[in-house]
Every structure is written in C-alpha cells, then in structure tokens.
Design a protein around this nucleic acid. Sequence first.
DNA 1: ACATTAAGTGATT
DNA 2: AATCACTTAATGT
Length: 222
Amino acid sequence: MHTMLEQHYQRKLDDAFGFMFEPELMQEIIRIGQARTFREGDLMMDIGQAITHLPLLLEGAVKIMREDSQGDELLLYYLERGDTCAMSFSCCMSTKKSRVRATVEEDSEMVLVPLAYLDKWLGDFPTWKAYVFQSIDARMNEFLESIDSLAFLRMDERLAKYLRNKVMVTGSMEIRTTHQEIAIDLHTSRVVVSRLLKQLEKEGLVQLSRNLITVRTMDLAR
DNA sequence: ACATTAAGTGATT
DNA sequence: AATCACTTAATGT
C-alpha cells in the first residue's frame, strides 16, 4: 500500500529539494510521490492532455513547447533539476488540460505528486508555498524573456541565445541536434538556421558537422 | 550501388 | 528573414 520511494530516489530528491523543504514535507513527498524515469525524446505531456500530477524534477531536462493551430511550434523554456511545471499550477485551478507540450531533452528522473496535494500543502508547509510562488515567478520571467526575444531580437541574436541556453541546460559544449530541430524550436526555417550557423562558424565561434554543433566560446553575442 | 537525410548556397521575394 | 530550387555531403540498407 505505502510504496515509499526507493533509496536511490530519496537521495536524489534530497539533493534537489532537501535544502529548501522542511523534513516533514520531504517525508510527505517520499510517502506520496511516485518515481518516474523518462528517456530522451519521450513525450511527457501533450497539448490538451489532462494533467493529474505535479512533476518534481530530480535530474535531466525537459523542453516545454507551445504549438499553434497550424502545428507550428516554439520553444518556451526548459525544466531542470529542482524545477516543477508551472502549467500544473494553472491546471490545478482551472482547465486541467495542458496548453503546452513537454518533451524530454535529456534522460530524466522525477517524482510525481497528485495535484490534490499541491493545494493541500500550500496550507501545511510554508516552504512549499514559497517554492510554488518562486516557481511561478521564475516561469513568469521565462515567459517575458521569450516574448522579448521574439519581439525585439533578430534571428541571429535569438540563435546565439538559444545555443548559449542549450549549453547551460545540457552542461556540454557539444550540441547534438540538427539544424531542422533548431529551426522548429525557434520557429524559423532550416535554411535560415544553416546560414546563421555557417556565419558563426566563419567567425570561429562554433564548429559544425553533421548532427553536431561544437560551441567554442560562450561569447556568442553580436 | 542506391536511397535517404542533413547541410550548404545562389537567387528571388 | 522566408522560400525555392538545387547541390553536396554523410549515413543507412
């Protein structure tokens, strides 16, 4: 009945959240949460899909994308260790349906908590409340950044920012992806991405080969 | 050897 | 910056 989290997950949970949650809350999460692992490329959540649980990221990275009615996508932000999905908060209050798509960027581990506890814990644990508000704040800032990029930055600047962010999230200077993938994330065409990347290569900022972009410097700005 | 997929490029809008 | 049309390069069968 009480399938507590395995030691392995308990340790990782502690690494990612232990410093900010009180011990009683950690015990609750261990008692109630279910551990899940996802492989790179997995579709965790799609638009229109019902949200029943709140994910607490222990490891890996998840890409959050928006899609319009014509099926055109745009990268919003990444979730990393210690993050949770702010969409779930909104779902808890209203629609219960996801309005974003979540795909696994890097093999990930997480603990799932039924949405009902999200609300309950707000009253029970001060650190939970602080975490939820801090998460909303962080996501709000990500949204504003996305809007700013979209509205005020040229495509070359957006690409530079994208590459920098990708290096941060993956912790590697080697970005294993295709120009087509980047084009989808930035909502532009593959040709444009190829041209801008070629330009960066000529400036010695990156090195290109098939399915691989090696970032030579983090100073990719114009 | 052939097909498929990824990337490079000139020209046009 | 987007699109077209085509080329070249890398990879899979």
